[in-house]
Amino acid sequence: MSLLRTRQLTKSYHLDEVEQRVLTGVDLELVAGEFVGLVGPSGCGKTTLLNLCGLIDRPDSGQLFWHDRELTGQTQAYLTELRRRTIGFVFQDFNLIPVMSAWDNIAYPLMLLGMSGTEQKERVRSLAEAVGIDTLLDKRPARLSGGQRQRVAIARALAKRPELIIADEPTASLDEDTALTVVELLRDLGRQYGSTVLVATHDARLTRWCDRLIRLHHGHLVHNSTTEGVTAGEVLV
C-alpha cells in the first residue's frame, strides 16, 4: 500500500540569477512500514528531497500523493495539520527545545494532538524505556550527550506513532557505535509502530539496516533496490 508517492518532482535553487537544478524528476514510492535509505554524494539533493517528502517545502513541479491523494495545491494549513498528525522528524543536530526537559520534548507532539495527560505519560514512559533514556527524562537537552539527545529526538519523532518519519542524517553528529545503535533503534521502533522511515545518510555501515536503498544521481533516482548486493563502495559514490 502506497503511503507517499511522487511523480516527476523538480526543484531548483536560484543563486544570483544562476539556476541550479537539484531535482530533475524524482519518482519515488514509499510503502507503509518500510525502512528506506536515501544515499548519494554530498550536495546531490537528499535534504531537498526529504524536505519535499516531509511536506515542509514545495516542489517547483511534479506531484505528491499521500495515500493516493494529491497534495499539490493544498494550503499551508492543510500540510501543517497533516504533519502534526502523521509525520515525525529526526534532525541531524537534534533540534530539541532547550528549555524543555527530555520528557517534555518527547511529549510535545502529543500535546499538539491534545492527548490526555495519562496517555501522554504512558507513551513517554514506554518510549523512553525503549530508547534507553528513562533515567534522564527530567534533564534538559544541554545536560545530555549527543547520543542521548538523538535518542530523545527519536522518541519525540515516534511518540505520536506517525505514519512517516523523515530522518536527515540522524547519525552525522554521533560517533560510530552510537550511530549504529541509534539507527537500529529507529528501525526497530519504526517497525514496531508501523511507521515508514525515510533516512538520508552518508554512512555506508548504516545502509545494511535498510529494507531498501535509493540513490540520487543527477537529480533523479537511479537505484531503487533492496540492500542485497549493494556494497559500501557503491553507496558512497
Binding site: G54, I56, A77, T80, E81, L82, R83, R84, R85, I87, G88, F89, F91, N95, I97, P98, Y108, P109, L112
Partner: peptide, 14 residues
C-alpha cells in the same frame, strides 16, 4: 529561528 523551524516542521501552527 531554527527552533521555530523545528516546531513548525513538527506541525506547530504559525
Amino acid at each position: 529561528i531554527r527552533e521555530i523551524g523545528a516546531l513548525a516542521a513538527m506541525g506547530t501552527r504559525r
